[in-house]
Write a protein that binds this DNA or RNA. Structure first.
Lengths: 231, 231
DNA sequence: ATTTTTCGTGAACGGTGTTCACCTTCGCAA
DNA sequence: TTGCGAAGGTGAACACCGTTCACGAAAAAT
């Protein structure tokens, strides 16, 4: 192990990196994703814009690093919220996870837009980001795993032949392995799209034409979805 | 009526406006929402950037006008697709509307991002855009109205007291009136959020970590949702 | 003590939205 | 027909932006 000596220089460098990312996040919450600018960040940390290229390959790379951090933040908030209900049933704890996901997203709309909104260019989300997203998903899988360990899943989600399902969920299986039966994977993805739909539309204000408060819709859909997973 | 004489000058002006919007859309599909730039549009139509301020108050206003047009485009595509199944039951035609919504969105990801993605700044979507969105929603309401005229809705979506529901859906009621019973409005919003969730995640590539093809998920959720509306 | 790597800078290039003064051209009325 | 006012278009300018480059200073390694 050579990591025992952060070597002073690496320490300063690491400090600068977090300072830069903090400044980027301040700009993000202040003015939305488009307000993140290399020169504004440089002003905030007391540097010139070209200096930031010693720490990040480009503005995109910097933003990507911020997004990865945000996934860790969200993950932390979500597990902390579920931790306050550690005594409850696993499925109920999944509910708390999702509730905190909504709460965090509403409290951090700019961050949400950056993480879950429309990606800007051609967008092949690169490896470190996928890793952070996978760790976030893991949180849900873990608690869900506890549930299915106690109550094995009996139903069938649909009538696709197993080979077709296996092919369909190949990306998932390659990343997360065969922890759950295929119908459970289906139910999970369906649940995720439903709750994402509600939260995204609420955060983006795309439901203001219809309703004043999205919470009743969210709670009802959440309980319905948990019911699907329970049966 | 004074509109009988477009007065030549107004005619040229209108032609320029559509040329400008066409150029903006070309840039949009070529390079995404961020590729729309005033100067690039000006180059395309053979003008200088300041000249465009004779036609639009700002770049934002121009983009807003484009988005309003896109809603009309999408609406046209959707009604055309449903028109090919005019002989079918109204609820089945709603299914065709939604299917075409997904097809159009996948074929026009950049446009979709602009219309349904994360809004950029503080975002009070202004009047003409809301109007276009309302006309788009109308398409679904009309076909849905045909269905409920033939098969009056019997069930209850949830257990909220009517006064609370009335308060909840006040924005909808103010725009679209009391055409449907309150539970139907609830079901419609729930259905819209579900299908939006799937389509948005598919268009944005947010489901590639899980599955290779979203269509089975979409079709199953669609048929389930239509079942909810039918009962 | 000297060399090498790291860090930071200022200048520059090409791009952006927006404003302004200025000029031409068109439409209309006297 | 002449004049005049409004509309449309332009070039210059301002303040931003991401990025590259040559260069100097400081720190680390030799």
């Amino acid at each position: 192990m050579t990591t025992t000596t952060p070597s002073r220089r690496e320490r300063l460098r690491a400090e600068t990196v977090v300072e830069v990312k903090e400044a980027a996040r301040r700009l993000l919450v202040a003015g939305g994703p488009t307000a993140i600018s290399l020169r504004a960040i440089a002003r905030d940390v007391g540097l010139t814009a070209p200096a930031l290229y010693r720490y990040f390959d480009s503005l995109d790379a910097l933003v990507l690093a911020v997004v990865a951090d945000l996934f860790e933040d969200l993950r932390g908030a979500v597990v902390a919220a579920a931790g306050e209900h550690a005594a409850e049933e696993p499925l109920a704890r999944v509910g708390h996870l999702v509730r905190e996901f909504r709460r965090w997203s509403l409290a951090h709309p700019a961050e949400f837009a950056l993480m879950f909104g429309s990606p800007v260019p051609g967008v092949t989300r690169c490896d470190p980001l996928n890793e952070a997203g996978a760790r976030f998903a893991e949180t849900f899988f873990t608690t869900l795993g506890e549930h299915f360990q106690r109550h094995p899943f009996g139903g069938a989600a649909h009538d696709l032949p197993e080979a077709a399902q296996r092919d369909l969920f190949r990306p998932y299986l390659e990343t997360f392995g065969e922890r759950f039966p295929l119908p459970v994977i289906y139910l999970f993805v369906a649940a995720w799209t439903r709750l994402y739909g509600i939260v995204a539309m609420e955060v983006f204000g795309h439901l203001r034409w219809a309703m004043t408060d999205v919470e009743p819709l969210f709670e009802l859909e959440l309980s319905r979805t948990l019911g699907h997973l329970a049966r």
